Simulated scan of single mutants.
Amino acid sequence: MSARTVDVAVVGAGAMGAATAWHLARAGREVAVFEQFEPGHIRGASHGASRNFNVAYTEPEYLAWLRDARTLWRELEAESDTALLETTGIVTHGRGRDLAAASDVISEGGFEAELLDVSAAEARWPGFRFDGPVLHNPGAGRLDADASVRAFLSGAAASGADVAWSAAVADVEVHGDDDVRFTVTDADGSHRVHARRLVCTAGAWTSKTLTGVKGVTLPTLRVTQEQPAHFRPLDPSASWPGFNHHPAADDPRTAWFAAPVYGMLTPGEGVKAGWHAAGPEIDPDRRSFVPDAALTAALVRYAGEWLPGVDATTFNEITCTYTSTVDARFVLERTGPVVVGAGFSGHGFKFTPVIGRTLAALASP
């Protein structure tokens, strides 16, 4: 079996792997990215045209990361000459969160926040029925996920990174602090790769890739299939900020929710809405890609009751994976020559350039 030597190997070319390669290559590191599927595949968590750049966090560290992420997204836009982050605003409502307290923390964290009553919010955005009060973050927005991944990878390649598609990684072995080896299988067969560092950003395949690797201990990573849908807006010219709706268990209007709801307008596709982390646990290699009928019915009910600006009967569902930790905190760790970025729990995409920067720093000597 032939062998190849690289400085840093990145396993997985989704958002986090692409951003890590971008930072490493721009810093002059030799980087090889290995992705088991083809470009633009739909088996993971990074595909699609829309993600919320939501700033409604009450943790100061997340808000600090969001400030940096906003700067880095704009830097990537300038480098790639591609629009990636559109400022649409995001509205958050529902009695499941203390929005007055959140507003204060968000303002202190450097993002504009305003509280509106239901009537004022519904007058401004008649496509919604609101569960007041309503937190509006005008500086929040929407990211183009597919275009973002392409921009990171193109930028990494322009700085010298090598990106290999349909190249599956297996048999990872640690041989020393600066020596990690693995097998890559691609169209030309199988070969061994020796790397000084391995950054695993394999998403739903993280546990499969690293189970049994000496010294590497992963937290529980739960992989689920999620199923947002795009609903047809009744007025194509209407303004749609992104949105989050947090149910209250003691409120019969929302107690039936499967989970909190998130959504946004995806240009050309409709108003996207989905349950956050409500899907069934799955094996990523054995997915049916068939939406759960009960969750579909509940989402249609949600659209009918809370989104008067859409046709709740006309929609297209998509599926994706979440890889979640117990507390929804990210795994960003290094053990010997192995760096792990995992568990982004359905809310990591907005932080992508900062996570890539963090993983690149962990992979440094």
Rank of each mutant, 00 (worst) to 15 (best):
S364K: 04
N137V: 05
A19C: 02
L85R: 01
G17F: 00
L72H: 09
E108I: 05
T313R: 12
A202I: 00
D188N: 14
E75W: 11
T352R: 14
P260G: 14
H191M: 10
S119R: 15
E59Q: 14
D7R: 06
W205Q: 01
P260D: 11
D146R: 13
A361F: 00
T211I: 06
S154H: 15
L99K: 06
V6T: 15
T201A: 06
S207K: 11
P337T: 00
T206C: 02
V261I: 10
T319R: 04
V11P: 00
A45M: 13
A21V: 08
L116R: 05
T224R: 09
F53C: 12
D251N: 10
G348M: 00
R4C: 09
V174P: 08
G176W: 03
G336R: 02
C320V: 04
P233T: 07
H276K: 06
G12I: 09
S103A: 12
A229Y: 05
L221D: 02
P228R: 10
D146V: 14
G139F: 00
I318Y: 14
A64E: 14
T206E: 01
R287L: 13
A294E: 15
V199A: 00
S166Y: 08
G127Q: 03
S148V: 03
I318G: 14
W73K: 08
L234I: 02
S154W: 15
S2N: 15
A145D: 09
V10G: 01
A121D: 05
T20V: 09
A328Q: 07
D81H: 13
A69D: 10
V134W: 01
K214V: 13
N244P: 11
V11D: 00
S190G: 09
E59I: 05
T71P: 03
A277G: 15
A259I: 10
A293E: 15
M1K: 10
L143K: 03
T82W: 07
S154P: 14
A293I: 13
P236H: 08
S148H: 02
H347Q: 12
A13L: 11
A140E: 03
A238W: 04
H136L: 11
P228W: 06
T352N: 11
A167Y: 05
Q225N: 07
E122V: 07
G270W: 06
P241W: 02
N244V: 15
H175W: 14
V31Q: 05
N137G: 06
V300M: 11
Y302K: 08
L84E: 04
E79I: 09
P39V: 05
T82Q: 09
V180S: 06
D292Y: 09
P284C: 09
Y262C: 11
A140T: 02
R74N: 03
G132M: 07
H191C: 12
A121N: 03
V326T: 09
G341T: 01
T224H: 09
G203T: 06
Q36V: 12
G127K: 04
